[in-house]
Design a protein around this nucleic acid. Structure first.
Lengths: 193, 193, 193, 193
DNA sequence: TATGAATGAGCGTTCATTCAT
DNA sequence: CATGAATGAACGCTCATTCAT
């Protein structure tokens, strides 16, 4: 409820760790509380219920991607570079936070339908930015004007998502970031005029 | 354990319906048993535990995709047509079985890490066939020889998967099958020399 | 749900003992289950929830009073004797079951409003029989015809109830049954023409 | 602990309102504090614990009945008139304070055994005055000399209490005060020589 | 084989009370 | 005196699994 108090972020971060280390279904509220160094009851001063913690985790962390992407769109002008930076950003953030990668790619997807829907609302914002990049790219003739926006977005996001999930499932053995140019090249080939 | 007895398939089919109609977390063993028309205890004569039912659901249903894809590879010779037929097949099977679509795209993903790993083993077989198509296409110069197989596979599967999930989440409002040529065209652009 | 199975009565009786010995708020479901010699979960095969156990306790036990009173009304013909037998019956049943007396007079009254209302529905049946005795007594000129039925019923039941509660609160030190004629005489004086 | 400070009465009054409006089990300390316009912690400067608040509520409010009854005994001389005035007083006070009526007749009875015993101590004072009226009435031959004091008291109080509870449960739909003469007449018939 | 009654471990949430400020 | 953020113990209920018949 009080999202600016330090304890709020403290609990969100603890939740990421607890879920990553124990799995979604084994991340009991008491474990999150212990990880955060607060009492069980304290959780409920900052969150309505357990689902609220999980949505908050997603919203707080997803905002990193969204904010970075907004900055990228401001700084860069071509669709191609914007997409490259977007991929790099997406890969880098998750590469640098193993726990977060596990949580977003594997654990949070185990949530029930209700939670999934609320998570998708948050994701929508990120995808809207991606749509914007694609639309502007088409207007500027940088991208193939016969492209279907929705389908293109699904390809871009689906490819990125599948690449990361594969990497997480392989226990993050290889370097994800250096895949960026290859992924970018593949995607651009599909999108170019 | 006895996978050929009719009751085995009966329970697997009941599980698909129970999960699709109630959601993963509300598909209790007793509901599956009732849907199958057997007693709760009977389930355990055919399956080791609940997870075993779910893995079996995935294996039995995934084999439809795999078998169809094997036939496609036999009949068709070019990578492009094979991929088109593969997309069409994938879309058609799920378009014709609403329950199965919901289960594979949404519900089964809510399972724990252990189950997901076992499901991925089953999926591997399908992806291996896809890898084969890509490899042969490259050898025959039909596809860009600089392609990274894993990355390409992730793009193809990621795009297909994301497209279907979007469709399911939109309550299957539009026609999935007629998206096939557009998805195929997009993918081929990325893969072509 | 299955009220005729022996385990149903077993649990109801266990609940009376558990509540009498521990108090309403300390009679956890697990204590009732232990007292009944069944597992916690078994309770829920026979009762919808904890409230359902408590309503059942009251209904099952109250039916003793109601059935006895019906027999008394059949056998006896005058209002005076019927009331005497009713008082004797009420006192005797609770005198012979210390636990039940504690539960009905003290513990069950601690229940929430919802439960209280449901308990009152059960009690209504008993009070309706009492109303019948009073009405018939008035018609036969055995009782004062200027009596207000509701008020008279409240006096009769209020006096009986208060007498028993006092006895329970005094730790059942004196003999309740032998109070019957005195209570009867007092009540009859008020009701007689 | 400081019962004369204004904040003490402020909290007691807030408790009556909070309990009447929310029910006994939903009248959390925090709600009482809010209703009283003080912080949760402040409650504990004036009361030992929650039970102490509730006993105080009963003691403070019961003193109204007791004081009025003492005045009545001083002013009136016959047992019959004293009882009539007592009934009228009891009915009037609760008729004029809906919240208090709900709290004393319904909500406060949901308290645990410990609290009920302490409440009964407070009630004893009132009942002692009633006993005095009855004893003096018998000595003066206004009442039947064969009466058992305790039993008579139980009848008088039981009838009054049951009448009020019925009225509260019927959502205070009819006029309670005008029942006084009828209740008085019924009781006097039982007590008269 | 098939049954289904019985089991019991496991967990999200509430709320009276405390105590540092 | 007053505050209100923090505490943590306590409990009803579910459901996968077993086993006597």
């Amino acid at each position: 409820m009080k999202r600016d108090k330090p304890k709020y972020k403290q609990i969100v971060d603890a939740a990421v760790i607890a879920i990553a280390e124990n799995g979604y279904h084994q991340a009991q509220v008491s474990k999150i509380a212990k990880e955060a160094g607060v009492a069980d009851g304290t959780i409920y001063l900052y969150f309505k219920n357990k689902e609220d913690i999980l949505v908050s985790v997603f919203r707080e962390k997803m905002s990193i991607f969204t904010q970075n992407l907004e900055t990228i769109i401001e700084k860069e002008t071509t669709a191609s570079v914007r997409l490259l930076k977007m991929i790099e950003n997406h890969f880098r953030v998750l590469h640098e936070d193993r726990h977060l990668a596990i949580v977003t790619q594997l654990e949070l997807r185990q949530s029930g339908k209700q939670l999934r829907l609320r998570i998708n609302e948050v994701l929508r914002e990120y995808l809207n930015l991606l749509d914007g990049i694609l639309k502007e790219g088409i207007e500027r003739k940088e991208l193939d004007e016969s492209l279907d926006i929705r389908l293109s977005r699904q390809m871009v996001f689906g490819t990125i998502d599948e690449t990361i999930t594969s990497w997480v499932m392989n226990e993050q053995k290889y370097d994800l970031i250096e895949l960026s140019p290859k992924v970018h090249r593949l995607i651009m080939k599909a999108l170019q005029p």
